[in-house]
Computed example of a mutant assay.
Amino acid sequence: MHTAPQKFSRALTALAALTLAAGSAHAAAPSYVGTWASDLAQCKVPQERPEAPLVLQEKRFDQYETHCTFSSAEGAGDEWKVKANCQVEGDAQAYDFTLTVSGDTLTLTDDAGSQDLLRCR
């Protein structure tokens, strides 16, 4: 027979385990997730226009007619090395780049150099 304190203790332990499991299932998104633009006016441009902003999700990005799926995104915090498979205007291309976040600025660096983008609100 279980006493009331034992039952309470077991219930508390089960609740703590469920809370931890739920918390790990909803880990925070990487710092690069969001919509990014060269200036804040670009944030309002729709994706069907060539000058659309860059929309980064955890495992992909889209910008106008460029759609990429990440085969790997290694890093943590504010710097990520990404390997992606892209469709650019219908052509398949591999694309490797680095994303670095500092406050509301994202620096995208690839073989062509680096570009700073601002976080859209």
Rank of each mutant, 00 (worst) to 15 (best):
T3S: 14
T3D: 14
A4K: 14
Q6R: 12
F8S: 15
S9Y: 13
R10I: 14
T13Y: 15
A17C: 07
L20E: 03
S24A: 13
S24C: 13
S24Q: 14
A25N: 10
A29L: 12
S31K: 10
V33Y: 02
W36F: 07
A37V: 04
D39S: 12
L40Y: 09
A41H: 12
Q42C: 12
Q42N: 11
Q42H: 09
V45T: 08
P46W: 07
Q47C: 06
E48R: 15
E48K: 13
P53M: 01
Q57W: 06
K59D: 15
F61Q: 06
F61I: 09
Y64E: 01
H67I: 06
C68D: 06
T69R: 11
S71H: 05
S71N: 08
S71P: 00
A73R: 12
A73F: 00
D78C: 03
V82L: 05
A84Q: 07
A84S: 15
A84R: 06
N85Y: 07
C86F: 03
C86Y: 02
D91V: 13
A94N: 13
A94G: 10
L99R: 04
L99T: 00
T100H: 01
V101H: 01
L106T: 05
L108K: 11
D110N: 10
D110V: 06
D111F: 13
S114G: 01
Q115A: 09
Q115W: 10
D116V: 02
D116E: 13
L118V: 09
